[in-house]
């Protein structure tokens, strides 16, 4: 008997005769925002991302380029990883001297390590938890791009922000590689003191783009 068959047989004999559970009946939790909660969604998202000690800007869509340029110059970021499909207008105000590292052909880990940072979009933002979700789609790149560089600048469109975790789950495609990011990497392993910045990017900067006049 293979171990596969052995384990399956053990399971079947262990649960034989046990009653079934009605899972759908047990889903009494919130799956959509309460009326009235919807209005402060983007503000809540910004506040919750800030709680993780990330840098957050909330700006009208047309100011994204300037905000990105100021953020990069503030860090003296000269070599920036740029994933395929990133909206060109986000880089409309960066100086011509910025070295743009394209991931085609794929950058080696050492190249990523030598970069000053990475700029991406995202697949979704979750207001209640202050979470950004990347799905390796256009403008996001493969997972290593947002992992190895020490600085991650992420642009989130306001219409990508959902109220809670259930709304995010229903919007995401599980077959894609997903990375949920809530603030910069952190550890609390030393006397439960929170230290931001361990192996992932030590700085996370988020630009939330509001469409139309504020």
């Amino acid at each position: 008997m293979s171990s596969r068959d052995l384990i399956l047989a053990r399971i079947r004999s262990a649960v034989a005769g046990a009653p079934q559970t009605d899972v759908e009946e047990a889903r009494g939790y919130r799956t959509s925002p309460a009326p009235g909660e919807e209005s402060g969604r983007v503000e809540l998202f910004a506040e919750r991302v800030r709680d993780y000690r990330a840098i957050v800007h909330v700006v009208p869509e047309e100011e994204v380029a300037d905000t990105v340029a100021r953020a990069l110059s503030g860090r003296n970021a000269g070599r920036l990883v740029i994933p395929d499909g990133l909206p060109e207008e986000w880089l409309g105000a960066v100086p011509a001297t910025l070295e743009r590292l394209r991931d085609d052909p794929p950058l080696a880990a050492a190249d990523l390590d030598a970069a000053d940072g990475v700029i991406t979009g995202c697949a979704a933002g979750i207001a209640e938890t202050g979470t950004i979700v990347l799905s390796a789609g256009p403008g996001q790149g493969r997972r290593a791009l947002t992992l190895v560089p020490d600085y991650h600048l992420c642009v989130v469109r306001a219409d990508q922000v959902v109220p809670g975790v259930p709304e995010a789950i229903s919007r995401l495609d599980p077959v894609r590689p997903l990375t949920w990011i809530s603030g910069p990497s952190a550890t609390s392993d030393i006397e439960l003191n929170r230290v931001e910045g361990v192996h992932g990017p030590r700085t996370l900067e988020v630009v939330i783009a509001i469409s139309g006049p504020r």
Binding site: V15, G17, A18, P19, Q20, T21
Partner: peptide, 9 residues
């Protein structure tokens, strides 16, 4: 007799 155990609420 039914020994519902831990699966039953």
């Amino acid at each position: 007799a039914t020994r519902a155990g831990a699966f039953a609420s």
